[in-house]
């Protein structure tokens, strides 16, 4: 009977392991190989009324709880230049003319990375049943797995989430209100830029996609 009990219990331990292994998740590489691109626009804006735009050449804003920096510059990162070039090219392709900031542009372009950094700590209580020597077969593999005995004590698992969204805004500089305030007429959010397979390629593709799904942007409409 003891032999039967051991067989059956071993069978069920294996079974429990199988259940645990069946809860799969998507392949990470496929999940992260393109950014999620979200856009929205101000329905009052008349995008065909704008003629010119201004955009920074080598600087992207940074809003982060992880860094004191407020900008990402081209001399410290490969990221700003291709991103800003891609935005400028898309606007030019839609018929707008690039001008300098001081040349009274109709549209201003804001580009910002919003970085949210969180650290989590989790206390883990390992289940001895899942480890040889701790459950149904005390000492069975004791000699070999003896060095694993620390598994039976809770330990703290520290891990971090570092997430980021690239935000692109088109600002109407042409139609200021009486208080000289401006309105954001289009916003694109591209994420996550901190977990990518190829950051710059995905960012540029994401920018192209943002304009592609915003066919109302253009001088010819």
């Amino acid at each position: 009977m003891d032999n039967m009990k051991r067989k059956v219990r071993f069978f069920f331990v294996v079974l429990a392991g199988l259940i645990a292994s069946c809860q799969s998740e998507p392949d990470t590489k496929t999940l992260l190989d393109q950014l999620v691109v979200s856009t929205n626009y101000d329905t009052i804006a008349r995008f065909n009324s704008y003629v010119t735009f201004a955009i920074p050449t080598d600087t992207i804003g940074l809003i982060s709880n992880n860094s004191q920096d407020t900008i990402i510059t081209a001399n410290r990162s490969d990221f700003p230049r291709p991103v800003l070039d891609a935005i400028g090219k898309n606007l030019s392709d839609r018929g707008y003319t690039k001008v300098g900031r001081k040349e009274n542009p109709d549209l201003g372009v804001n580009v910002v990375v919003v970085n949210d950094f969180n650290v989590f700590q989790q206390i883990v209580y390992p289940d001895p049943y899942f480890y040889p020597g701790g459950g149904f077969y005390p000492g069975y593999y004791g000699g070999y797995y003896g060095y694993n005995s620390w598994y039976y004590y809770p330990y703290v698992n520290t891990y971090a989430y570092n997430t980021g969204v690239l935000v692109i805004e088109l600002v109407d500089l042409k139609n200021r209100n009486a208080n000289n305030q401006v309105r954001v007429v289009w916003t694109a959010y591209l994420g996550d830029i901190y977990s990518t397979v190829s950051l710059i390629n995905q960012a540029v593709s994401g920018i192209d996609q943002a304009f592609q799904q915003s066919n109302y942007i253009g001088t010819g409409l």
Partner: peptide, 17 residues
């Protein structure tokens, strides 16, 4: 795919589980 709603649009691929 791109999903359009009112004045916004979202593009992504998805894994349904």
């Amino acid at each position: 795919k791109t999903i359009y709603t009112n004045n916004s649009a979202v593009t992504s691929d998805y894994f349904n589980y």
